[in-house]
Design a binder for these strands. Structure first.
Lengths: 342, 342
DNA sequence: CATTAGCAGTCGGCCGGCCTGAGTGCTAAA
DNA sequence: TTTAGCACTCAGGCCGGCCGACTGCTAATG
């Protein structure tokens, strides 16, 4: 029993993986004999397949069926077998076109990036943009919604924007609102959240009882916002989940995708290192993902921050193509949001 | 052949609809005899069922099966048969809890509203918030991303916030950026988009070539943003699509849900009138929706604007419960975003 | 001694027939 | 007009047989 994986086994394994990715059906010795560039008979290939099965690379759905690659085989394929192409001309062009405009609305750009990536790879794409608000206040604004409702708008030094709804226990006049807005903007601008103190603010400005309540509420909302990390997630191509698995798995995954913690757990590892990550089947920590594969990487957002993006698809996806696409998208997105060289 | 729908037929039709909504399987004369409060035998009910079928309210999947309600039956049920309950204690409470907090991040509130609504109704919920930016500028800010990339932040008088990415053909210094930011903020504040003119701006402020380019780009981006309507859509419970239909329909609907125009077409009618709308099966204009039903209404956003929200579910949904839920959610959301009485 | 042809064996998928049970429509009596 | 009774229909589950794809084993081969 061969325990080393020699050249011929490599070729055969490669053929099995490629064939299965293409057709989705178990591949038999005959098919391998045709497609692999090894000049041996089907019988010999059967022996090799049998050996590869014993080594854990292949699996038979049932006795008289062909072979299906295991997670281990995909892992080996990704690490040692595949050649990774740059995205083809059309695909690269589609991505570049997305980033070509001179002026661009930010949310829309991220959303379209996720949709495009999903379409190009026939998977579900996730673009994750964490914006740390732990930063200095740059501008504060208050907008009146009704007598007792006020919207607070915060802009941070790095350009994050937050909107909080404030509810007051008594009505506040437009005049008071304006004075409080001007006051908080003047006093809080330049401060980081640890240096904001509602009590201190109330001592420095004099307002009526309604005004004071507003000052306090505003200060608290600012501190709350600055202490949080705004995490925007853009998901595209959820429909692709449905035909990559049985309805039950699809439903489980769809449900999970709506959960913040799930996306976080999926993408947070990537935020620490700028490196492509492939997690195949059971390599995924998240149970809902263990029937799928994940391909992701990170991209620079500026201010030393990293965002991350990736796709979720069937374990039998075309890894080479998908990886190329994910990397190219990350490159372009990073270059658009942040370009150290200008 | 009876062509009028008399009292007994009403009771029987009601029983069929309720039974089918509950079990999902065709209901036969026996089941109706048990559940409807009519004291007649199954044989009589068979005659009535047959009549109701001829009138277009019922359908037989095959000869020896029970009856299934048609879209017409659901329509009649919604219009004349059902009694609409207020949401039950627990459900009402769950909704109220969502709106209880004194301070609330706005995007998060909408997102959670859609998720909660979908969970309570076992459907897919959509919350649509159109924010018209056709308004006056309240504040302009410029944030430097890199030498040639700048983020423009606009706040409008109504509290809308837009972020646009500007790409410049030559580097701009931090100093110039600050001067341009202060200048545009001062000059543009209070203006509506029709009164903003890049050429005029350039005449009123003197900047180097890079600065001038920035002024022009900023002015154009402001005009562009103010001319657009920012439409935020929050979708919750997409997973519920999967088990309410076959995989193919589910996939089609999921795909459609990601399209902006689809959501728009679905919800824009509601923006003109404050009224509950129910569209059953083929009553829907959108082809992708003709196997589903839609229940939606609008809610006030303040400043005379209306938003809308609704759910998409199987035609055999529990209309009474769903309608109650949608209305209660709209009521609460409207009261939170905008309360004329304070 | 690796390779190969040949062959028997396995097993999923498909087709047709059979049976069951739920539910119908019709008819004749109340 | 209502009802009991009865013959009829048909989807769905079950069984058995056939087909075809593919395997593992064995014996022959260069």
């Amino acid at each position: 029993m061969a325990t080393e994986i020699d050249g011929r086994k490599k070729k055969i394994l490669l053929a099995v993986v490629q064939n299965f990715v293409l057709t989705g059906r178990p591949v038999g010795s005959g098919a391998v004999a045709q497609s692999a560039d090894v000049a041996v008979s089907a019988a010999t290939i059967r022996n090799e397949l049998s050996a590869l099965e014993e080594m854990g690379f292949l699996r038979q759905p049932h006795t008289s069926a062909g072979r299906v690659p295991t997670d281990v085989a995909y892992r080996y394929y990704v690490d040692s077998l595949m050649e990774q192409p740059r995205p083809s001309g059309r695909d690269a062009e589609a991505i570049e076109r997305l980033f070509a405009a001179q002026t661009r609305e930010i949310e829309g750009l991220f959303q379209e990036a996720s949709v495009l990536l999903s379409r190009l790879t026939h998977t579900t794409a996730i673009v994750f943009a964490p914006f740390s608000s732990a930063d200095a206040v740059r501008h504060i604004d208050l907008v009146r919604l009704s007598d007792q409702r006020v919207m607070l708008i915060i802009i941070t030094a790095r350009g994050q924007v937050g909107r909080q709804l404030l509810r007051l226990s008594r009505p506040v006049t437009g005049d008071t609102l304006q004075r409080v807005a001007a006051f908080t903007d003047r006093v809080l601008t330049g401060l980081t959240s640890d240096r904001i103190d509602a009590g201190d603010l109330l001592r420095r400005g004099k307002f009526g009882s309604a005004g004071s309540e507003l000052v306090r509420a505003a200060a608290e909302a600012v501190v709350e916002y600055m202490g949080s990390i705004e995490e925007r997630v853009f998901i595209g191509g959820t429909a692709n989940i449905v035909d990559s698995a049985t309805p039950e798995w699809a439903q489980t995954l769809l449900e999970a995708m709506e959960k913040q913690y799930f996306i976080l757990d999926l993408l947070k590892d990537l935020l620490h290192e700028r490196r492509l990550t492939v997690r195949i089947g059971e390599e995924n920590r998240l149970r809902e993902l263990q029937r799928y594969s994940f391909v992701g990487t990170s991209y620079p957002l500026g201010h030393g921050l990293l965002g991350s993006l990736g796709v979720v698809g069937p374990t039998s996806m075309d890894y080479a193509r998908t990886i190329g696409m994910v990397e190219y998208m990350a490159e372009n997105l990073g270059r658009t949001m942040f370009n150290p060289k200008g």
